[in-house]
């Protein structure tokens, strides 16, 4: 758990972060979102003490970070940044092994961990372990960045616009990857972005920041339904809120279940239980279907979802 209490950061006379209070529960993904200069990166960098705070308290698991050794603190916090910051003179494997090496793990354990992480992030160890960062694509490099941050299994993950410099398709892939990994490892994550869609997709809770203050700290659904101010309302987009709300809910919520799962007939068009309502609706509109089959992870047909129901109850 990370708690920020009345935290302020000044640069000269300018106030970058203005007396904020924020509690991030263990295992939750808190996304700080706002335009550039709103203080979100400054807030993140105060949590691992890359920046000192001007006043206030930051507690990690109840302990004031000002009393801790900054190196020890950071070794227990994965850190991913926009430009990846991979070490150009080290191979991919060496980059990922950075923190375990600092912690003086035995070699066999490091090797096993590097291989495990590369597999987790969908990088083939055989082809990529020996490469240098310059030889990777942007998406691969950022995967290595995430693997490096997870290497020593830290409790906390700090991510500063990690996917900001990537093209839309690569970014989307990495976001899905993040959700998948987060389901497996459940790290307390603080994620900074200026992209509200990214925030809605990844966050369990969103903190909207502007001019150094937190305007609203709530779940994605509440942010969409009850924006606290005009600024937040504009940020989430007044017009397409309906569709954004649909993309937060899984098909599972509104499907009509069969009595028992049926084996799927080959070639049947359908959606998965984990897919969101927006996708299901889009498929039905495009193919002009009144309803569509729903499959579970094993590929069995477990029910159907209808267009009517999504439109009536989806938001």
């Amino acid at each position: 758990m990370i708690e920020l209490k009345n935290v302020t950061r000044r640069f000269g006379d300018a106030v970058a972060v203005d007396n904020i209070n924020l509690t991030i529960e263990t295992g939750e993904v808190c996304v700080l979102v706002g335009s550039s200069g709103c203080g979100k990166s400054t807030t993140l960098r105060m949590i691992n003490r890359l920046l000192p705070r001007s006043s206030g308290e930051i507690l990690v698991d109840g302990e004031d970070i000002a009393t801790m050794n900054p190196q020890q603190l950071r070794l227990n916090m994965g850190y991913v940044i926009q430009g990846t910051g991979l070490f150009p003179h080290w191979t991919v494997a060496h980059n990922i092994a950075m923190v375990p090496r600092l912690l003086k793990w035995p070699k066999e354990r490091i090797d096993a961990r590097v291989e495990e992480l590369m597999t987790l992030l969908d990088l083939d160890p055989a082809t990529h372990a020996g490469k240098y960062p310059q030889q990777l694509s942007g998406g691969q490099a950022q995967r290595v960045g995430v693997a490096r941050a997870l290497a020593a299994d830290p409790n906390i993950l700090l991510m500063d616009e990690p996917f900001g410099a990537l093209d839309a398709i690569t970014r989307e892939n990495l976001q899905l990857e993040m959700l998948r990994i987060q389901q497996q490892v459940r790290k307390t994550t603080v994620f900074v972005t200026h992209d509200i869609d990214e925030a809605l997709k990844l966050a369990t809770r969103i903190a909207v920041m502007d001019q150094g203050r937190i305007l609203q700290h709530d779940t994605p659904e509440s942010i969409l339904r009850r924006p606290a101010s005009g600024f937040v309302e504009n940020l989430v987009g007044k017009q397409d809120r309906g569709l954004k709300l649909m993309s937060l809910r899984p098909v599972r919520d509104l499907m009509t279940r069969h009595g028992s799962p049926k084996p799927s007939e080959t070639g049947t068009e359908g959606v998965r239980e984990d897919d969101n309502l927006r996708l299901a609706l889009s498929i039905m509109l495009w193919q002009d279907l009144p309803q569509v089959a729903v499959f579970n992870a094993q590929g069995q047909e477990t029910g159907v979802i209808s267009r009517e129901r999504i439109i009536q109850e989806g938001t």
Binding site: R45, N48, L50, Q71, Q72, R74, Y79, I81, L86
Partner: peptide, 22 residues
């Protein structure tokens, strides 16, 4: 690249380690 130094520091290298290793 400032990002490299930032990453080294942010991931827990001491100033000496940043200098010698990076």
């Amino acid at each position: 690249d400032p990002a490299v130094r930032e990453a080294a520091r942010g991931m827990g290298m001491s100033p000496m380690q940043v200098l010698v290793r990076v």
